[in-house]
């Protein structure tokens, strides 16, 4: 039977180290299986957050060989096993213990985004009518499982720690889902420019690369939002044209 070595970060908030564990590897295993096997065999106190094992709950986010990935969706046959496989917690958030990080900052950010504000109901019974083709565009954003891998890989948060000024790709996707919704009448462009710091995004597309749901974060959410900010704040000619059209 094949064996592989896994270097797993062990430690708390202040100090930590990479500890090597060897375990058997069988066909079809994912990284999370290996972590569970290590827990069962040699490290019962290894802390690791997980839930569905199907890539839908977004709990088992970690950095595998330096790249943010879901442990449950990373098959061992896709990574080289001839050298130790490193498993670390997400770097953009404070570590709690071993592979667990404190992602509560994300929930605070979500509260700051203006909520869905529908237009007046279309029918007397208080219901709305909308075309599927108009909702299709935001449907993609609803696939997000809030694994926060995009937040983790974003260098604005990860390397520059702009947590107080930038909401990160996950919440730009969330804002896009609200802002582009055919029923929504709220305007979030001023917030996007100032409070949400969309100007910090420099379009490196790392968020898109790591998204396990394959949401085209940069092209379909962030850039269209940047363009809406341009409409409002950086396009005087467009503003003039709109002014004349209204008259």
């Amino acid at each position: 039977m094949t064996q592989a070595t896994f270097s797993i970060r062990r430690g708390g908030r202040e100090t930590a180290e990479l500890v090597d564990y060897r375990t058997d590897v069988t066909e079809g295993m994912v990284v999370l299986d290996a972590v569970h096997q290590i827990q069962a065999e040699s490290a019962p106190d290894l802390a690791c957050r997980w839930n569905c094992k199907a890539g839908k709950c977004g709990s088992c986010s970690a950095e595998i060989n330096g790249m943010p990935k879901l442990m449950c969706m990373t098959r061992l046959d896709t990574i080289p096993l001839d050298e130790p496989v490193t498993i670390e917690p997400m770097r953009a958030f404070p570590p709690v213990k071993d592979l667990i990080t404190d992602v509560s900052w994300n929930y605070e950010v979500k509260k700051r985004i203006k909520k869905f504000k529908p237009r007046k109901p279309d029918a007397e019974d208080g219901t709305w009518r909308m075309m599927q083709e108009d909702v299709d565009r935001v449907q993609e954003f609803r696939k997000c499982i809030e694994c926060f891998l995009c937040q983790d890989v974003c260098h604005v948060l990860r390397d520059h720690e702009k947590h107080a000024e930038f909401i990160g790709p996950r919440f730009l996707v969330y804002t896009a889902a609200l802002e582009m919704h055919p029923l929504d009448v709220e305007n979030r462009t001023q917030d996007l420019k100032d409070a949400h710091g969309i100007g910090y995004c420099n379009i490196t597309k790392c968020c898109t690369k790591v998204c396990p749901e394959h949401i085209t974060i940069t092209d379909n959410a962030i850039i269209p939002l940047k363009e809406r900010v341009v409409d409002e704040h950086y396009d005087p000619i467009g503003k003039l044209v709109k002014l004349f059209r209204k008259r």
Binding site: R13, A92, F93, P94, P95, W105, E108, R158, E161, A164
Partner: peptide, 10 residues
Amino acid sequence: MASNLVSIQR
């Protein structure tokens, strides 16, 4: 906000 964030080692 974000006061609970510890510094990330760059």
